[in-house]
Amino acid sequence: MLEDGRSFVGEAFGASGEAFGEAVFATGMTGYQETLTDPSYHRQIVVMTAPHIGNTGMNDDDNESEKIHVAGFVVRDPSRIASNWRAQRTLDEDLRAAGVVGISGVDTRALTRHLRERGAMRCGIGAASDDEGKLLERVRASPSMVGADLAPQVSTERPYVVAAGTGEPLFRVAALDLGMKRSIPASLAALGCEVHVLPARTGGDVLVGLAPDGVFLSNGPGDPATADHEVAAVRAVLDAGIPVFGICFGNQVLARALGFDTYKLAYGHRGLNQPVADAATGRIAVTSHNHGFAVRAPLEGVTETPYGRVEVSHVSLNDGVVEGLACLDVPAFSVQFHPEAAPGPHDAQDLFGRFRDLMAAYR
């Protein structure tokens, strides 16, 4: 049941019960396990546009966090079996074990077209035998994503360290966990970084006090307009001249620290097939996305900010949305997409190398 009153009937899939959240669609044809366990999907009901989901099952190695984070799951045609040499369980089994309510047999093409035309909106999954009017009331009473401060809800509670994959660490990185996927510190560790993962509410004095070679700002859920604490922490890092690299939610936090505004997209970018242009080189990368908010900044020219000149570095070729920022006078840059790209594509993986080179230059 969508908050505008449109409803779809299907069959129970996963756990039984009711679920409420923001209805969004993800266009990836693979990677449903990474999608389900991405903390950025906290409090969202995800509609998979690919019709056949679950054929490779679930395993213990591909999770991007310790649990499934989606509020609900909507698919067209769930696989009857898990057929993959790495599969340890079926998708349905993991959904039920996690208490995640799903629905199958839905015309996900029609649902996606509706969300594209009307925008992402609140929705609910419940028993078709219940009073539809009552379900609609509960949907409309559920919280909106606008104004939602969710990063602290999915962030690590205690700091921890991911050791450098090269043995002796070459760089020390302080990573602000705003809902970070596991593949991100793994990507940094592979380049020789010792990654200190810190809770979302970590203050700027702590970040600077670690004397890191660089500070990383992760992906995460919620409205960036609520991230005042994180913005203040990043400003302290910028004031100290420490290199900064942000992705997704981290891009929006850096943007706010620089003085830019953010806004909610109509239906967002979610999936593994989003084309992005690098303004400096003209190179086009197919990238992995998961964001419902974006940065408002001029696509051309240079903007003067309290931290010097800033320009838009990447632009979405689908709708012209800002997909990255580059600071020209302080060591900081960010992108709206996911260069770690678990499960793919890996066109933007070299951005981690750019961060490494920036840290080396400012050491």
Results as ranks from 00 to 15, higher is better:
Pro243Trp: 10
Gly167Tyr: 13
Thr156Tyr: 05
Arg158Ser: 09
Gly31Asp: 12
Gly204Tyr: 06
Val322Glu: 01
Asn63Ile: 07
Pro159Lys: 08
Ser288Trp: 00
Met121Glu: 08
His52Gly: 07
Gly72Ile: 14
Leu317Met: 14
Val295Trp: 03
Ser155Ala: 15
Val276Trp: 01
Gly28Trp: 01
Gln153Asn: 05
Asp205Ile: 02
Ala279Asn: 07
Tyr307Gln: 03
Glu22Ile: 12
Thr112Val: 03
Ala341Val: 09
Leu191Arg: 06
Leu328Glu: 06
Met48Cys: 08
Leu328Pro: 06
Pro221Tyr: 07
Ala211Ser: 15
Ala12Cys: 02
Arg43Lys: 15
Leu299Arg: 12
Cys248Gln: 06
Tyr362His: 10
Gly203Ile: 02
Gly271Met: 03
Val286Asn: 12
Arg138Ile: 01
Glu3Tyr: 10
Arg89Gln: 06
Ser155Pro: 01
Glu18Cys: 10
Pro199Phe: 13
Val101Gly: 00
Ala12Arg: 15
Arg138Leu: 06
Arg138Lys: 14
Phe20Val: 01
Asp94Cys: 14
Gly31Phe: 07
Gly271Asn: 07
Ala19Ser: 10
Pro345Thr: 14
Thr166Val: 05
Tyr362Glu: 13
Ala97Lys: 13
Ala360Val: 02
Gly99Ala: 13
His346Arg: 13
Asn290Trp: 01
Val74Lys: 09
Ala233Cys: 03
Asn84Val: 01
Gly54Glu: 09
Gly10His: 04
Val295His: 05
Gly167Ser: 12
Val70Lys: 00
Gly72Ser: 10
Arg113Asp: 08
Lys134Asn: 06
Thr27Phe: 14
Arg109Tyr: 05
Arg80Ser: 13
Pro345Ile: 15
His314Gly: 01
Gly292Val: 04
Ser65Gly: 15
Thr262Tyr: 09
Leu150Val: 00
Asp77Pro: 01
His114Glu: 04
Gly246Leu: 00
Ala23Val: 13
Ala128Ile: 11
Arg86Ile: 09
Ile247Leu: 15
Val106Gly: 08
Glu11Gly: 07
Gln252Trp: 05
Gly57Gln: 01
Pro143Leu: 15
Val315Ala: 03
Leu170Cys: 10
Val234Tyr: 07
Pro143Gly: 14
Glu304Ile: 07
Ala233Gln: 00
Gly28Glu: 03
Leu91His: 02
Gln274Leu: 06
Glu22Asn: 03
Gly14Glu: 08
Ser7Gln: 12
Ser142Gly: 13
Thr166Arg: 11
Ile247Gln: 02
Pro39Phe: 11
Ala50Met: 09
Arg296Leu: 11
Val24Asp: 07
Ala232Asp: 14
Gly21Lys: 04
Arg118Gln: 14
Leu178Asn: 07
Asp77His: 08
Glu34Met: 06
Val100Tyr: 03
Asp329Thr: 09
Ile284Cys: 05
Val46Lys: 11
Pro306Glu: 15
His269Lys: 14
Leu115Glu: 03
Glu3Ser: 15
Leu95His: 01
Phe8Trp: 15
Ile81Leu: 10
Val237Leu: 03
Thr112Ala: 15
Asp239Asn: 14
Thr30Leu: 07
Gly271Tyr: 04
Glu137Tyr: 03
Ile45Thr: 11
